[in-house]
């Protein structure tokens, strides 16, 4: 298992998980969201081939009201 930070909270995943595995595990479903890994934007086209490592910081951002 690996431990990483998801939006500032500790989460565990199987070692060798990709971002697509994490999305399934976290049940993000069909909502609109974008992901950054260690402050770098990860486009949807790269979810499959981006693997997560122990200590990674993942941000999942969704639409929100703004001015």
């Amino acid at each position: 298992m690996i431990t990483l930070q998801l939006n500032g909270e500790n989460k565990t995943l199987r070692a060798g998980s990709s971002i697509i595995d994490a999305i399934n595990d976290w049940q993000l479903g069909e909502q609109s969201f974008a992901i950054a890994l260690n402050e770098e934007f990860i486009p949807k086209s790269s979810y499959d081939n981006t693997s997560l490592q122990d200590g990674d910081r993942v941000e999942v951002l969704i639409p929100m009201q703004g001015g």
């Binding site: 976290w26 993000l28 969704i62 639409p63 929100m64």
Partner: peptide
């Protein structure tokens, strides 16, 4: 209309309307 991006509250149901999220985006 201007909008922003904020952290998804993982583990919650689809974002509550007042907190943005899916429903807010649908409405816009």
């Amino acid at each position: 209309v201007t909008v922003s991006l904020r952290r998804q509250n993982i583990g919650s149901a689809k974002g509550a309307m007042n907190d943005g999220g899916h429903d807010f985006w649908q409405l816009l």
